[in-house]
Simulated assay, not measured.
Amino acid sequence: MVQVDPLTRALINEVSDMDWEYDADGPDHRLCLVLIDRIRVLPDAPLSLPDVHDPQIRLVTEHLKDEPGDENEIAHWAAMAGMSERSFARKFRAATHMSFGEWRKQLKVVKAIEGLALGDSVSTIAYRLGYNTPSSFSTMFIKATGLSPSNYFD
């Protein structure tokens, strides 16, 4: 997944309306080449979670994927994995290339997008993810994606 800027979005819209059998030497072909060039340099969207192979760390990540609103502190998760907080933090970063806090925030963004795609209300998603108010959830979502939850799929 990539972050699509307004120019690239406009190019995608324009190209999607084109006839598939365009002149290979004409302006439509050149427009497609510009779109391809734009897509190649787009930054990755921060919307994916790395696969975790370490069984101790995976125990924690799978639980949080099922219960993303679980707000237990890192001490709880370290104990669940059977290690000290420091060891857990070190091993978590090695397994995910993210800190526990970064991964947890990323999980909430991914789960929020899944909920929005299913048509869940912003309030329902906010409470499911452990936010006290929809506005605090919306603030996090805007910081992470650049868009409000209600405008994300527009």
Rank of each mutant, 00 (worst) to 15 (best):
Q56P: 07
F92Q: 02
D51P: 14
G69D: 01
Q56H: 15
D70C: 12
A81T: 15
L47V: 10
E71H: 02
M83E: 03
I74V: 15
A81L: 08
S87E: 03
P43M: 03
P50V: 12
S84Y: 03
I74T: 08
L64D: 03
D44H: 06
D51M: 12
R58K: 15
E67F: 14
F92P: 02
A81V: 09
S84D: 10
L64N: 04
E85V: 07
P55C: 10
E71F: 04
W77Y: 13
E62G: 14
A79I: 06
I57H: 01
R93W: 00
W77S: 12
S84T: 08
A94S: 02
D44P: 01
R58S: 10
A89M: 06
V60P: 02
S48Q: 09
E73H: 14
H76V: 08
P55D: 08
A78G: 09
V52N: 12
A75G: 10
W77N: 03
K91R: 15
A81R: 11
P43I: 00
D54T: 07
V52P: 10
E62Q: 15
P50R: 15
E85P: 05
M80L: 15
A45T: 00
K65N: 12
L47P: 00
L47S: 04
R93D: 00
G69A: 07
A78R: 01
F92Y: 02
A94Q: 04
A75H: 09
N72Y: 13
I57C: 04
A75E: 08
P46K: 11
K91M: 02
P46I: 13
S87F: 02
K91D: 03
E71I: 10
W77M: 13
E67Y: 14
A78V: 06
D54S: 10
L59T: 07
M83T: 08
P55Y: 05
E73F: 10
N72D: 13
L47G: 05
E73K: 15
I74P: 05
H63Y: 11
D51F: 09
D51S: 14
P55E: 05
A94C: 00
R90V: 13
A81K: 09
R58Q: 07
G69R: 00
R90E: 04
P55W: 11
K65V: 09
R86M: 06
A89C: 13
I74Y: 07
E62V: 15
E73L: 14
R86T: 04
D44A: 08
L59Q: 05
P43Y: 00
H76K: 14
D66V: 13
F92H: 01
S87R: 12
D51R: 15
L64W: 03
P46G: 13
P68S: 14
F88C: 07
L59G: 11
L49V: 07
A45Q: 00
V60Y: 01
F88E: 01
L49H: 04
Q56I: 01
I57A: 04
H76L: 10
R58P: 02
